[in-house]
């Protein structure tokens, strides 16, 4: 069996958990956690894609042989940093809302009446 398949299944499952959390949770902190989980899923996917049978880390310090694909690693690093930036903003918005209204429950904060 292709050893990448369990990694892909994990990535898809983690992604689904993140989306599920986004849909059902109403607390801003829990939403932040769900966002973070969703972002990590794509990182797992990238790591799985970089896999090459028998490959080692792409650092050319003498040894030859197959190396893992370096591009997904570089993309993963960029995606991690962008995700961290998003998470920081989400948390700071949560802190701002909590300071102002004393709650982090979106349902209590968000005026659902569309026409207002």
């Amino acid at each position: 069996m292709n050893p990448q398949i369990p990694v892909f299944i994990t990535a898809a499952l983690v992604w689904a958990i993140g989306i599920y959390g986004l849909i059902i949770h109403r607390n801003m902190i829990q939403i932040c956690v769900s966002l973070s989980i969703m972002e990590s899923a794509v990182i797992i996917l990238l790591v799985g894609l970089a896999f090459v049978p028998g490959g080692s880390a792409p650092i050319l310090d003498g040894h030859t042989g197959p190396f893992a694909d370096p591009v997904p690693h570089a993309l993963a690093l960029t995606a991690i940093v962008i995700g961290a930036g998003f998470l920081a903003i989400a948390l700071s918005l949560t802190v701002a809302m909590y300071r102002k209204y004393g709650t982090a429950d979106v349902k209590k904060l968000f005026p659902w009446d569309e026409t207002q």
Binding site: V42, I82, F86, A90, L93, F110
Partner: peptide, 16 residues
Amino acid sequence: SVAGFVYLIVASVSGS
């Protein structure tokens, strides 16, 4: 802040 948070959720899903 609430609008920003809603936008952030939408944008995260979109980015993902």
